[in-house]
Amino acid sequence: MTQSMLIQRFIGEPGGLLKALHALQNSNTNNFLSPQDLELVSGAFGVPLAKVWGVATFYSLYSTIPRGRYIIRVCESAPCHVVGAHNILTALAKNLNICTGETTADGKFTLEVTSCLGICGVAPAIMINDTVHGNLTPESLASVLALYN
């Protein structure tokens, strides 16, 4: 399916712009909104490119820089913080040998921090793409990451 077919069904739908951005980002192997994607949305919705850019840079789920196949989002809000989220982040960074915001050399993982993911019941928690992982310890991370090998 071409990119423009992908967003076809959102055109004309009031407020379809966010949905179109979601669809394009999800279809992109590098998990981001490319300049071409943004231009496509701008043209399809008749919205200035600057506004599309303004929207894309407002929401934290959108990225305008290429990312890995798997986005690891580590919650750093208070409920995870008090049960050791920073240990998880440190362990992940060490395990993947990247800093926050970076992508592994093989283009597989991108490490991000995020506000609360709403799975505080099993804190500390992370999300890898759409999948949630909770009750983590620095030791249990290896087995979680192994799921993506």
Binding site: S77, A78, P79, S115, C116, G118, I119, C120, G121
Partner: peptide
């Protein structure tokens, strides 16, 4: 749009 840290009731 439940974003309040520590809240997951709506979810």
């Amino acid at each position: 749009d439940e974003g309040e840290p520590g809240t997951f009731k709506d979810r």
